[in-house]
């Protein structure tokens, strides 16, 4: 069983390592991740929101849905823990 798990891990790792061949080198400013939406965010965020911290601007404004439902997720987690662990006081 352990050998099987080890083999599965090794296979996944080799596939992923093979996949890194197509990745951009570290710190490449022209990598695909840095070319699409992020330059728009960086250039416009300060003018449109007056917030110098770009992370906060994107977190609170451009990606507000993400943050909102993420707050709901941790709220649900808190509720779930209370529901799972509390016992009826007799």
């Amino acid at each position: 069983m352990k050998a099987l798990a080890f083999l599965a891990t090794l296979a996944t790792g080799i596939v992923l390592l093979y996949g890194t061949r197509d990745f951009a080198a570290w710190g490449d400013a022209a990598s695909p991740a840095s070319r699409h939406v992020s330059p728009v965010y960086i250039e416009r965020a300060v003018k449109e929101t007056h917030v110098p911290n770009l992370v906060t601007a994107i977190l609170g404004d451009y990606r507000g849905y993400d943050t909102m439902f993420e707050t709901v997720v941790i709220y649900c987690a808190g509720l779930a823990v209370v529901c799972v662990l509390r016992r009826q006081k007799t």
Binding site: A33, S34, S38, P39, V55, I58, L59, R63, E70
Partner: peptide, 16 residues
């Protein structure tokens, strides 16, 4: 200048 600032988008995603 967009090339002088690291990409903030992964930071936001990973913060959440």
């Amino acid at each position: 200048d967009a090339t002088g600032v690291v990409n903030p988008l992964p930071h936001v995603l990973m913060l959440t």
